[in-house]
């Protein structure tokens, strides 16, 4: 064995070049069953939410003569306390509950993520002020803070979205700042600054692509948190207001049915249904995020 050194022949793990879709498909094929379960559940929820008016047998606020009707072919899951079809409201609930939570999470990421990135790069008085302000805001439990603000601004969908997004953006700020800080200290960022690149270029081209995977995972987790908070507030009667169908308030409205479980188990299950719908989506998102986190932990070589 002779050793003639050549830089070209050094062992670099060259991977096969495949198209993006090919790569995603190979990753998907290797995904564990839990991740598949999660993705399928999420897909079903999204379809139901988007096509709600075509799937639901009755209208969102359509009132039928018999309140608290039992489960039957006409009313699959019966009717609620003023005679609205529970099945239809579950379907519209998907649209409202998920839609509002999604919108809120996006808003939280725009605010928290943007400021977190700026704070990480800037690292001066701005970072100091933002970080201290976030510390103080986070010293008040989110649900309590939300309750207080809602008592002042009133319970409309928009105040709900803005209040929860603002409160949640503090968590997003912390994470984005921490993750971005890890990237900011890397030599390639210093190299870009030494080259004379502007702040915008450094943020967009050097830092953002490298913090995207943890942020995507965090988006999933934050969505669950926001979703559960909004459901809790609606359950408490200060979130999404009737007649808009949403799962949290549906649990509360039908709660009294649970006492009849020993006579009619199906009726007793009615308030559990929307709560279970909430839990199922949260579990599904958690499964997918878990898998995604394992796939992308750290600075991976390839997306």
């Amino acid at each position: 064995m002779t050793e003639t050194y050549s830089a070209k022949d050094e062992v670099g793990q060259v991977r096969q070049r495949r198209s993006r879709w090919d790569r995603i498909w190979t990753e998907l094929k290797k995904a564990p069953i839990t991740a598949w379960f999660g993705m399928i559940v999420i897909a079903i929820y999204v379809i139901v939410a988007v096509f709600a008016p075509f799937i639901a047998p009755y209208g969102e606020a359509e009132v039928h003569p018999l309140p608290f009707a039992p489960w039957s072919p006409e009313h699959l899951f019966g009717t609620d306390q003023i005679g609205r079809d529970v099945f239809s409201r579950l379907i519209y609930g998907a649209r409202n509950t998920i839609g509002i939570a999604f919108l809120t999470t996006i808003l939280a990421f725009l605010i928290g993520g943007g400021l977190g990135l700026v704070a990480a790069i800037n690292q001066s008085w701005l970072d100091q002020i933002l970080s201290r302000a976030v510390d103080v805001l986070m010293a008040i439990p989110a649900l309590i803070f939300a309750l207080m603000l809602l008592s002042i601004f009133g319970s409309s969908v928009w105040s709900l979205v803005v209040i929860i997004a603002l409160l949640d953006s503090t968590r997003v700020f912390r994470l984005t700042r921490a993750v971005a800080m890890n990237v900011v200290v890397m030599d390639f960022v210093e190299a870009a600054r030494l080259r004379g690149e502007g702040l915008g270029w450094v943020m967009r081209r050097e830092i953002l692509p490298n913090i995207l995977p943890p942020l995507v995972a965090e988006f999933g987790l934050r969505f669950c948190f926001v979703f559960l908070t909004i459901a809790a507030l609606s359950f408490l009667g200060v979130g999404i207001q009737p007649p808009t169908a949403d799962w949290g308030s549906m649990v509360r409205q039908n709660a009294s049915l649970i006492q009849f479980a020993q006579y009619d188990l199906k009726a007793g299950l009615t308030p559990i249904l929307p709560a279970a719908a909430i839990a199922l989506l949260t579990i599904a998102v958690n499964f997918v995020v878990d898998w995604f986190l394992i796939k992308t932990s750290g600075l991976r070589d390839e997306v």
Partner: peptide, 10 residues
Amino acid sequence: SMPEFLVAYL
């Protein structure tokens, strides 16, 4: 993953 009220009602 469950909201507290689901655990409670179960």
